[in-house]
């Protein structure tokens, strides 16, 4: 069967499915995730500060991995929420999407746009956290290295979770997503800690792997979806 080609751009495809273009998506998610990070840290300062005073709390949070962890966790939760977006035929909208122009090609473009949006979210968010760290408000214990490492591993996790998308059960899939993000995120933080923030060959290799895994897993996920869940 001839596959219909979509005349929409990636961003338009995303807007068709979610009401938001890539820009809107990023514009809405980055500030929220960043504010969540700031709010988490402030709360923790208050909580720990109740015992030993704010200054001591601040010292403890910034010199340990706590701030790094929160950077990773808030980002993870943000991405995981976005990844719960699904467009099964039986869900509201499922049938509508399957009758629009471009058919499955539009879906493919939407998925690509979604991945681009998520990766952009990770990069911008972590950049914002880095700036806050660099100007001294909430320093991270391993600064730049922690940021880069976390970014690499979270994006790699996005790739791994493309495989997890093949899990049909919604709850199982969401939990797997969350689990994968946490595990990779922790590895990101700890691997930076182990080398005290000076990233080397290991991280270079992981970065190269990420660049390979993400598009390949994306393509495989789409093939699997087309075969098993698009128009069955």
């Amino acid at each position: 069967m001839e596959n219909n080609k979509s005349t929409l751009t990636f961003s338009q495809a995303l807007k068709l499915y979610t009401g938001n273009s890539i820009q809107k998506f990023v514009l809405k998610s980055v500030p929220v995730t960043f504010l969540a990070y700031m709010a988490t840290l402030v709360c923790f300062h208050i909580l720990l500060g109740l015992e030993n005073g704010i200054a001591a709390a601040h010292k403890e949070i910034t010199e340990s991995l706590i701030s790094d962890m929160f950077m990773m966790m808030d980002c993870t939760i943000g991405i995981a929420i976005i990844m719960t977006l699904t467009f099964e035929k039986r869900l509201p909208g499922g049938k509508f999407f399957r009758t629009t122009k471009g058919g499955f090609d539009t879906y493919k473009k939407m998925r690509a746009a979604l991945s681009i949006a998520i990766i952009t979210l990770v990069v911008l968010y972590i950049s914002a956290v880095y700036i806050v760290n660099a100007v001294g408000i909430f320093p991270l214990s391993n600064g730049f290295g922690s940021c880069v490492s976390t970014a690499i591993f979270l994006i790699l996790a996005v790739g791994i979770n493309n495989f997890a998308y093949m899990i049909k059960n919604d709850v199982a899939r969401s939990l797997t997503n969350l689990f994968v993000f946490f595990v990779f995120g922790i590895i990101g933080i700890l691997s930076a800690e182990v080398v005290d923030g000076s990233l080397g060959i290991f991280h270079l290799i992981m970065a190269i792997m990420t660049v390979g895994v993400v598009p390949i897993s994306h393509k495989l996920m789409l093939e699997n979806y087309r075969k098993n869940r698009w128009d069955n």
Binding site: L8, Q12, K15, L16, G19, F97, T100, K101
Partner: peptide
């Protein structure tokens, strides 16, 4: 309205 416009000509 936005999605209908994108989904059809």
């Amino acid at each position: 309205a936005n999605s209908m416009e994108l989904g059809f000509d």
